[in-house]
Design a protein around this nucleic acid. Structure first.
Length: 345
DNA sequence: AACTCAGCCAACCGCATTCAG
DNA sequence: ACTGAATGCGGTTGGCTGAGT
């Protein structure tokens, strides 16, 4: 016969997780590692279904998850990947390891889809003649070479847990806060670090400045050339930003920027590697996370080795890979990128 | 101050695939 | 080889929150 049932339907708790439950789950996974979800509710005493435990871990408690404040860079990646892969959120999330598929899916449904709609409706009068949808438009911007690049990238990388214990410490801090101030809402969103959010806001604002400082995309240019000013009002600033994200037309600038960027990416790789080593030595307990860290370091080295044996990466690969291996200095690199790629972003 | 409404997001549901027995 | 549970994944929903009236 098959396996015994994973969990009984009766006595299973549903709804939002409490900080106490989170702590129980996190400490169990720290001890035993993620996986074997069936045994989690039994061994922890949590009145949750194994499925619920796995979801809670992967979507919220897993270390290294970045929450909220999607950067324009991430937006661009999501838009391109969605155009390429469709609603394969797990596949898209594999290129953005700091984001969960649920997070990306939510962000797409609540923000990007609307932007797309506005963008499309603003462009429609021009697109109507050749029935080009935004999907086709984006796909055209994204060459078949890039599709191959994505496949290559998928083979090269393994999904890696980020090296920080940020989430767990936030969890503990949030729990301490909520314990000491019972009136305070136990809203799990409260775990997010205000400093982090602040930095993200600054970064976001910076990107917006760069974007809004006069980058006219191909579509807008086309409109101007055709004297289609009647739709100017329809294209909001966010649409312009959006078009900028989609536009890969100024390839000369891309190549120039890429050459410079390549250097920063290399130094960044070193950075992340030493970061990992540093964090390994600084922790004393041999936690599961440490094991994952060591695993990650090995993966990183393996990636670097395999990269040495492979042909030069395309611009897109660098873009994507950089985001994977260099999260600690993403802000710096993005700033540099935004300056260098100003005609595009 | 009270109410309504829309936006957002965590979590659930159900289907498809994988895999243990 | 077969069965059925475990797992993965995408779609959907319920409840919270803040803005508007």
């Amino acid at each position: 016969m098959g396996r015994p049932p994973c969990c009984e339907k009766v006595g299973i708790k549903k709804g939002p997780w409490t900080p106490e439950e989170d702590i129980i789950l996190v400490s169990y996974i720290q001890e035993h590692g993620p996986g074997n979800w069936r045994s989690v509710p039994t061994n922890t005493g949590l009145l949750r279904c194994s499925k619920s435990c796995r979801l809670r871990w992967t979507n919220y408690l897993r270390p290294g998850i970045k929450r909220g404040n999607f950067t324009p860079h991430e937006e661009g990646m999501i838009i391109h990947l969605q155009a390429l892969l469709g609603n394969k959120w797990a596949a898209i999330a594999s290129y953005l390891p700091q984001r969960t598929d649920n997070d990306i899916k939510n962000y797409w449904n609540t923000h990007l889809k609307k932007k797309m709609k506005r963008f499309q409706s603003a462009l429609d009068p021009h697109m109507a003649s050749d029935s080009t949808s935004y999907h086709e438009f984006v796909s055209k911007s994204f060459s078949s070479t890039d599709k191959r690049s994505l496949d290559m990238l998928n083979q090269q990388q393994t999904t890696a847990y980020a090296s920080s214990t940020e989430n767990i410490s936030k969890l503990l801090q949030g729990w301490m806060r909520s314990s000491s101030s019972p009136n305070k809402s136990l809203n799990i969103n409260g775990y997010s670090s205000p400093d982090h959010d602040h930095d993200q806001d600054k970064l976001h604002a910076h990107h917006h400045n760069n974007i809004n400082n006069g980058n006219i995309s191909a579509a807008t240019e086309q409109e101007e050339e055709e004297g289609g000013h009647e739709h100017d009002d329809l294209i909001s600033s966010s649409d312009q930003e959006f078009e900028s994200i989609l536009s890969f037309h100024n390839l000369n600038n891309v190549v120039a920027a890429y050459n410079n960027w390549d250097k920063s990416a290399n130094s960044c790789d070193q950075y992340s590697s030493t970061d990992l080593k540093g964090s390994q030595t600084s922790t004393t307990a041999a936690t599961t996370e440490e094991k994952l860290l060591i695993h990650d370091d090995q993966n990183l080295k393996q990636q670097q080795r395999s990269a040495d044996n492979n042909p030069p990466l395309s611009f897109l690969e660098k873009w994507l890979l950089l985001d994977e291996t260099c999260t600690s200095t993403t802000a710096q690199v993005e700033d540099q990128m935004m300056e260098e790629l100003s005609p595009i972003f």
